[in-house]
Design a protein around this nucleic acid. Structure first.
Lengths: 198, 198
DNA sequence: GCTCATAACTGAGCGTAGTCAAATACTATT
DNA sequence: AATAGTATTTGACTACGCTCAGTTATGAGC
């Protein structure tokens, strides 16, 4: 037989498959019902693993949300980055960059807000949290480079301003006053606040 | 006997006393151990009421923290407002205004961060949340009027800028990267971000 | 193939926030 | 002061995230 001895053991493969099943199960259930209406037991059942096994792959239910959403957030950032290319002014470019992130965050509002909450208040030593914070850093980097494009602004000020924009975004998306606001409403709020910045 | 018939029934009095006992118990236990290391059962025990009774006065454990901390936050705002009077520049004045709030928020870091979390993510229909958000509004009003003091700036821009400052404050205090930062460190961060604003 | 060490898994169980049907305390009425 | 009606209290109970002692699967050495 031409079968080569497996370069990677059954153990590793099983683990990877289980992780995949967990991610799929969590994504489906979270998307359909929202994180608050899904129990870790349901996720374990759908992933066909024991209730305790779930927590060998993820430390908390919140980390599971990060695991599922980080990729979507990163994609949204890429889309925003592409959008910002063609935008005329600085303000427009920043808003073009930000919009897909807001849209992504709002596709399921409870999940979006919980994601933000986990990001800021969760344990930053957990790998999924670090991953999320790293995407935030990338976002701020992108904002900074958009800011530098059109204006005379030094590196440091650009970075600081980007951080302020990031804070404005975060609170506009997270605030409970805005739970019923549309993406456009939130973009308006963010736009108004960025306007006093640039 | 000269005793006038009670103008208010025993019921009302009992309720008020119980609420007072609950607030005292919660404040003492939260201050000493931090909200995460105190159970609602302990609070109920110290307040000398049944475990279920607690939730007739407060909808969630988080609301209990707001109930305890709102007053402290409001006091800190008053102190900051007084400090801002004598400060030379706009930036200095804003920082003088903000500092007592940061100090207050940091006296017990877990409680401070949980307070912020509750404020943004909690149910805004609960009275204690509304109270907290109202103090935030007052804070933003105070910042706006400090901004207007020295600069040529219209009402609306001042309000918007104040909101941005508020967002910066919030995230600097809440961010898990800053759990080990001193008040001075955090004030430096806030200062750097406000500098690009004014 | 057999044995053993250990990595991975399991589900019963724990701790705690929050609920609810039953019990109790208070007030108004006669 | 007895009765009835209602506001308030209670603690046993539920639900759920998470843990851990015990079990099973995997692979290395022979």
């Amino acid at each position: 037989m031409s079968v080569i001895s497996p370069p990677i053991g059954r153990r590793e493969r099983n683990k990877q498959q289980k992780l995949d099943r967990i991610i799929d199960a969590a994504r489906e259930l979270f998307t359909e019902h929202g994180i608050d209406d899904v129990t870790t037991q349901q996720i374990a059942d759908r992933a066909d693993i024991g209730a305790g096994t779930l927590f060998l792959y993820v430390r908390t239910k919140g980390e599971l949300l990060l695991l599922v959403q980080n990729a979507a957030y990163a994609d949204a950032l890429d889309r925003g980055w592409a959008n910002a290319e063609g935008a005329p002014g600085v303000l427009d470019a920043v808003l073009a960059l930000v919009r897909p992130i807001v849209e992504c965050n709002r596709t399921q509002i409870d999940n979006g807000r919980t994601y933000l909450r986990e990001m800021v208040f969760g344990d930053p030593t957990e790998p999924r949290h670090r991953e999320a914070l790293e995407i935030v850093a990338r976002t701020e980097g992108a904002i900074a480079s958009v800011l530098k494009r059109a204006e005379r602004i030094d590196e440091e000020s650009a970075a600081t301003t980007a951080r302020v924009v990031s804070a404005v975004m975060f609170l506009s998306m997270a605030a409970s006053e805005n739970v019923h606001s549309s993406v456009d409403d939130i973009m308006d709020q963010i736009g108004a606040q960025i306007r006093v910045l640039v």
